[in-house]
Design a protein around this nucleic acid. Structure first.
Length: 832
RNA sequence: GCGAAAGUGGCGGAAUUGGCAGACGCGCUGGAUUUAGGAUCCAGUCCCGCGAGGGGUGGGGGUUCAAAUCCCCCCUUUCGCACCA
């Protein structure tokens, strides 16, 4: 096993150094990976999620994410597709900014350096990237259009400003990202965080909730990803019910999916952040209420949803009336109610909801039964809530209604009282895109005292990031951009009066929601994308990236497309027709990152084993969707295998030159085993690569090579079929080991590039076997196996089996109860 | 907590989707080889047992002629949870 950093060439390797360089130069010199956009027949846009150019550079996880999709794409190329495979950088974001705060190095500088290194590493992968399409989201030529797109949302009323809380460190006086909050405290100074309310920009993704759900039915995505998106959107049908405070008459709407339990409401709970809390708190309760609110501020929403911890809450000293019967009920606040979901208030029905039951039990609140089981059985509400559907009881004129019809009737009744209605609620919230940070696209809005929020005129885009030196957020919670008065001071485009610029920047998810559109011409000046090319080349045919993006990025990008489609800017509304995920590569069980100190540098492995060996080892490690923990102890096996392939070709040197001319139809074939193996391999490798099952594709090739080695010493070595098999092997291995395949292809007399060749097809007739091994079981246990003709029927196999000594012994003195025969597979004899 | 997945030899993983568990590779063992070595080629390698045979896919139960695969319960691990990207 190589010590890490050992770059001595593995002894069993082929001369990969020369080969890798030679072919990489060949591809580059001949512009082989430049897409011809005018050829749109059989177009295939193959996309991988672009990477953040961090100081970690590329690690093995990136190779895994990039090299293997390239193998899939190269196979498609050999199938005749006209390929577009771009690469770029998601270069705005927090890490570069943090690095700048620490070192004083401008993010633009560190990002440019990182990109330089990463670009060099990416080239070593040997992928078919069309580098003329490279883009970076922090490039003003890119973010000019991010801003332009934001203004489209703004002008259609879909970018709005609302108050929303941010994590606030009272000691550092800065806004913190969730990542910077550790156990409710600031990562730098350990001070407990609080929430600060700021007016921030939102994109109204919730308006698209139903379309985002419906669209899932027409795209080829993993079912689990669709499920996650459906759950994230979280559509639920129910009712909104309006309670009113007894003195002020203040309306408190709540959302419930169980309107049938309305008569069981014994208290109301508001989220601690609910704006009505202040108004409704009785003076004598103010001290307790304020103390409670302060306590909940440091608790994350995730922890608040936990059901293991003790329920907490306080009574705020006021009462409201149940609209259905006027019952007077107390109002509480509790952190198990989230302001971000529903209306931020719930009607508590402790008899029929678990969380309400726990809360009521702890605080000694009334528990009322209003639903009884459909089978009329007794329930004991002292032991817990009855949460199932049933029949309404203690509910006045609704008594006897089933839950389902009851919900409807209660809602209708409330509607006539003007105190509620049917309502669909979503877990999905509007997308907060404001960031109080430097390293992002400035939000192109001018705030004028007279005219309000005004869009920056299109001709003035991009709003360039000011060149400042202090990247720390300002102490009032505003963005570092606010410190540059030069940036802030401007005139209102409408009235011409003095105005100030919006100083917040856009969430980087905005940048990455449309990059696939920009790829087609990153230099295009006439708009965010070249409409001609976009019409021909989008949507993306295959998108590959990590499952960690299942909801946010993948939902935002879909939302963008739907919106752009509505604006008439594009003619499709789903960006990614087909989606696949790769698993995650961990190291010692942990996510790979510089901060954890477990980065594995692929450069060492590439220089010791070569690009193709490393790429193929990543394929062979396990199933692509699964990922796995990094361990390089098996890479010798792939190095050995590619060495064997290389020698297989060089050791047939006497006849090597004529190999290129053998064709299957002229072969006088008498080696049925090899013929079977060859055609089976073509079939398996093709299917496996289509399905991104690289590990088994490699295994299939190994089996073919093992068989060929077994024939090396025999006279078959010079047969046409043997030679043809080598030729096909080179084609099959090409997507996985592109540099080596080019070299071998040339060696057998082929003209480069091997990727201009057609993908091998298999001969189905060669796969039809004359004989097959069938198994005989007794009571499901294997007792014998027989080589029989493929069409062997039950009687013949049974006859054969009953003459077998071993099986005879098992059958002796027993009665046969049943026989199960599966043609071509097995016979199971069930005995008593 | 909620949502989504995963669990198979010493290790990474296969298994045509209910039909011979362990393909392929690593590691290990043995053999071959006058370039003696981190190379190459060949053979063996799930566990217990001399053997017949038995056991075996995280644990427990179930369905079935037949279960890694389907159903129920439990355990463990990973990913996401809206300001990391």
């Amino acid at each position: 096993m190589p010590a890490s950093g050992d770059t001595t060439t593995f002894k069993g390797s082929y001369p990969f150094k020369e080969i890798d360089e030679k072919w990489r130069r060949y591809w580059e010199d001949n512009n082989l990976h430049k897409t011809d956009f005018s050829k749109t027949d059989n177009k295939l846009f193959s996309l991988v999620m672009f990477s953040y150019p961090s100081g970690d550079n590329l690690h093995v996880g990136h190779w895994y994410a990039f090299a293997l999709p390239d193998t899939w794409t190269r196979k498609k190329k050999m199938e005749g597709y006209n390929i577009f495979e771009p690469m770029g950088f998601d270069s705005f974001g927090l890490p570069a900014e943090n690095y700048a705060v620490k070192t004083g190095i401008h993010p633009a500088v560190s990002i440019a350096e990182n990109i330089k290194i990463i670009r060099r590493q990416l080239k070593e992968i040997g992928a078919m990237y069309d580098w003329t399409s490279e883009l970076a989201t922090s490039d003003p030529r890119y973010y000019r259009w991010t801003q332009w797109l934001f203004l489209n949302f703004f002008e259609k009323g879909k970018a709005v400003r609302k108050e929303a809380p941010v994590n606030w460190c009272p000691s550092c006086k800065t806004v913190l990202a969730n990542e910077q909050v550790i156990n409710g405290a600031c990562e730098r100074c350990d001070t407990l965080i609080s929430r600060k309310r700021l007016k921030q920009w939102f994109l109204s993704i919730t308006e698209y909730a139903d379309r985002l759900l419906d669209g899932l039915d027409k795209i080829y995505w993993p079912e689990k990803t669709k499920t996650m998106q459906r759950n994230w959107i979280g559509r639920s049908e129910g009712a909104e019910i309006v309670f009113s405070e007894e003195k002020s008459g203040e309306k408190i709407p709540v959302f419930t999916t169980r309107a049938d339990t309305l008569f069981g409401v014994t208290y109301l709970v508001l989220a601690p952040e609910h704006p009505l809390v202040e108004k409704l708190t009785a003076p004598d309760r103010k001290k307790d209420v304020d103390a409670y609110i302060a306590r909940t501020q440091a608790i994350s929403e995730i922890d608040r949803q936990s059901t293991v911890g003790e329920k907490t809450g306080v009574f705020i000293g006021s009462y409201c009336l149940n609209p259905i019967n006027g019952t007077r009920i107390p109002v509480w606040i509790a952190d198990y109610v989230l302001y971000s979901y529903g209306t931020g208030a719930v009607m508590a029905v402790p008899g029929h909801d678990n969380r309400d039951w726990e809360f009521a039990t702890k605080f000694d609140l009334e528990i009322k039964q209003v639903i009884k089981p459909s089978n009329n059985s007794e329930i004991d509400l002292d032991k817990g809530a009855f949460t199932e559907y049933g029949v309404m009881t203690n509910s006045d004129k609704f008594d006897g209604e089933k839950s389902s019809s009851g919900m409807r009737k209660v809602a209708e009744s409330l509607k006539s009282l003007n105190a509620g209605d049917f309502k669909v609620s979503y877990k999905l919230r509007d997308w907060l895109v404001s960031r109080q940070r430097y390293w992002g696209a400035p939000i192109p809005i001018i705030i004028c005292e007279k005219c309000g929020d005004v869009a920056v005129p299109e001709d003035d885009l991009p709003v360039l990031l000011p060149d400042i030196v202090d990247f720390k957020p300002a102490s009032d919670g505003s963005s570092p951009l606010a410190k540059s008065s030069e940036f802030v001071k401007t005139n209102c485009p409408k009235c011409g009066g003095e105005a100030r610029r919006e100083t917040e920047t856009l969430d980087t998810f905005v940048d990455s929601s449309w990059y696939f559109l920009r790829y087609l011409d990153p230099e295009f000046e006439g708009g965010p994308w070249n409409p001609d090319l976009v019409r021909k080349w989008l949507p993306v045919d295959m998108y590959i990236g990590g499952a960690e993006h299942s909801v946010m990025h993948l939902l935002y990008a879909r939302y963008f497309c739907m919106f752009l489609n509505d604006c008439g800017l594009i003619d499709f509304d789903e960006p990614f027709l087909k989606l696949r995920h790769q698993g995650m590569i961990t190291n010692k069980g942990a996510k790979i990152s510089k901060s954890r100190g477990n980065v594995i540098n692929p450069d060492h492995l590439v220089s010791r084993y070569g690009s193709d060996t490393f790429r193929m080892y990543l394929m062979f490690m396990g199933s692509y969707a699964h990922g796995g923990d990094w361990d390089d102890s098996g890479i010798n096996g792939i190095a050995r295998f590619l060495g064997r392939v290389y020698r297989l070709v060089t050791q047939t040197t006497d006849s090597v030159k004529k190999i290129i001319n053998v064709s299957y139809s002229n072969i006088k074939n008498n080696d049925h085993d090899l013929n079977y193996r060859l055609n089976l391999t073509i079939k398996r490798v093709g299917n496996d690569l289509d399905n991104l099952e690289f590990n088994t594709a490699v295994a299939a090739l190994m089996e073919l090579v093992n068989d060929l080695y077994k024939l090396m010493e025999s006279k078959s070595k010079s047969s046409d079929l043997f030679h043809f098999s080598i030729k096909q092997l080179i084609l099959l291995i090409a997507p996985m080991a592109p540099h080596l395949a080019e070299e071998l292809w040339q060696m057998i007399g082929g003209k480069p590039s091997v990727f201009a060749q057609s993908w091998p097809t298999y001969d189905n007739s060669a796969l039809r076997l004359a004989t097959v091994t069938m198994v005989v079981q007794i009571n499901g246990k294997l007792r014998g196996s027989f080589d029989v003709p493929v069409d062997c029927d039950e009687e013949s196999l049974f006859e054969l089996a009953s003459n077998d000594e071993r099986i005879k012994a098992h059958l002796e003195g027993r009665t046969i109860r049943k026989r199960i025969f599966v043609p071509g597979r097995l016979l199971n004899i069930v005995i008593g």
